[in-house]
């Protein structure tokens, strides 16, 4: 009887604090944002506060999804997806090397990845501004080497945001993949080699599938905050690097139009969820196809 209860109980007692916390500080604010998104900005002289909710409408959504803003959402998703992909490409080899280091050196390697992460995010973004500026060290070095004819002009572009994103989010991709790779028993690789698989095949059919949970974790950790990124476009993006996060921020901080800002935020959350849903479907389909293919291979 007691066992039965424990199994069917939906809210295990130890999880209660977390559930209360999430409900109070995540779900409730989210609900408020959702409600606000149907309100409107009261006239300035009304002195009523930043939002009016006596008439609810979809007007903010029409505005948020209209031409110019709509394209910013698309550009934001593109930037986030590309930077997440680049992060994965750079992080995987790093994680692999870290995982294969002798344990004594592994700590040192991890520290090298972590220590820059202790510096303020903002400062790291600013550091790129100095590095990439037209009269900065990188530009002058390239000019001196003759690799460039004119000073570097990367700042204030989408490319600069992408570069900053890959740099700043890299550790978030490295760690989960490293953890997954570290847990792989080296014997599995040896077994694969003993059975005649070349190195690349061991990598593709043993290492990568076993690291898959880490890769998925890394993709989530990088993509979600990056899609809402606000600091990097503000510091590195100039007029060209605008992302949806800056649009939302400007509605709240500059325009004082909380209603439109809330609608833009809801659209952004919706897009991120949709992107993750599509990503998950692709992921599941790919792994299913891959395992089907492997089964057929071994069947031959």
């Amino acid at each position: 009887m007691a066992r039965q209860l424990r199994r069917t109980s939906l809210v295990p007692a130890p999880a209660l604090p977390a559930i209360v916390w999430m409900a109070g500080f995540f779900l409730a604010p989210l609900a408020i944002v959702l409600v606000y998104s149907f309100g409107y900005k009261p006239p300035l002289d009304a002195g009523a506060g930043p939002i009016a909710l006596d008439r609810l409408s979809f007007a903010n959504y029409t505005d948020a999804l209209s031409g110019a803003y709509g394209s910013i959402f698309r550009a934001t998703l593109e930037t986030a997806l590309l930077a997440t992909g680049l992060c994965l490409l750079v992080a995987f080899p790093v994680a692999l090397v870290l995982a294969r280091l002798p344990p004594r050196w592994r700590g040192v390697g991890l520290a090298l990845v972590i220590i820059p992460f202790w510096t303020s995010f903002l400062l790291r973004a600013f550091a790129w501004r100095i590095l990439l500026s037209g009269n900065g060290p990188l530009s002058e070095a390239l000019l001196a080497l003759g690799a460039l004819d004119d000073p570097l002009r990367v700042l204030d572009t989408r490319g600069a945001v992408q570069l900053g994103a890959v740099y700043n989010y890299l550790p978030l991709m490295i760690f989960p993949i490293f953890v997954a790779l570290e847990r792989i028993d080296p014997a599995l690789g040896d077994a694969s080699a003993d059975l005649g698989a070349p190195v690349w095949r061991t990598f593709v059919e043993v290492t990568v599938p076993l690291a898959a949970p880490g890769i998925a974790g890394g993709l989530f950790l990088v993509f979600i905050p990056l899609a809402g990124e606000y600091v990097l476009p503000a510091v590195l993006g100039g007029a060209r690097g605008l992302m949806a996060g800056s649009l939302v921020a400007s509605q709240f901080l500059e325009a004082q139009n909380w209603a439109l800002g809330a609608a833009q935020a809801v659209v952004m959350i919706g897009l991120i969820v949709a992107a993750l849903a599509v990503g998950s479907v692709v992921w599941v389909t790919t792994s299913w196809l891959a395992s089907a293919w492997r089964r057929r291979q071994s069947g031959c």
């Binding site: 110019a68 060209r240 690097g241 605008l242 649009l247 509605q251 500059e254 325009a255």
Partner: peptide
């Protein structure tokens, strides 16, 4: 403010 944000959006799409 709406004009300003539209100009910002238009500028962002140039790159």
């Amino acid at each position: 403010v709406a004009i300003y944000n539209r100009v910002r959006a238009a500028a962002a799409l140039q790159g």
